[in-house]
Design a protein around this nucleic acid. Structure first.
Length: 108
DNA sequence: TGAATAATGGCCT
DNA sequence: AGGCCATTATTCA
């Protein structure tokens, strides 16, 4: 059973969450999207609404919620947390995909 | 560069 | 109907 299949069948999530997860599964490895970008893809218009869905993501880490980052390049959150081991875990996953995660650098 | 604020849409109570 | 959120762009100093 593909994770994608389970998302469609899951009744513990709302229709909105499905759109977020399914769209998120469309994100290729080695790439990331911002909450706002992901929100626009599903026609939400609100990044926070997306965060709400990701936060309640019962499919982590099967759902690549770790490929979602903030618009300033920060990690955002992972498995319902915005700090702690979950964040370290998120960064590790991204690094294994060849993605560097860091804060918006001021100097070039 | 950084803090505070306004805007935004869905979910829970 | 109101408060909350894993956000984001704007504003002021």
């Amino acid at each position: 059973m593909d994770i994608r299949r389970r998302v469609e069948l899951s009744a513990e999530i709302t229709s909105f969450q499905r759109r977020v997860y399914l769209e998120l599964l469309n994100v290729p490895a080695g790439e990331t999207v911002t909450y706002g970008e992901l929100a626009r893809r599903i026609g939400c218009g609100s990044a926070q609404a997306v965060g709400q869905a990701l936060r309640r993501n019962p499919f982590a880490p099967e759902v690549p919620c770790h490929r979602v980052v903030a618009a300033d390049g920060s990690t955002g959150g992972y498995m319902g947390r915005r700090e702690g081991e979950a964040l370290e875990r998120k960064r590790e996953l991204l690094q294994h995909e060849g993605v560097f995660v860091g804060r918006e650098a001021s100097g070039g």
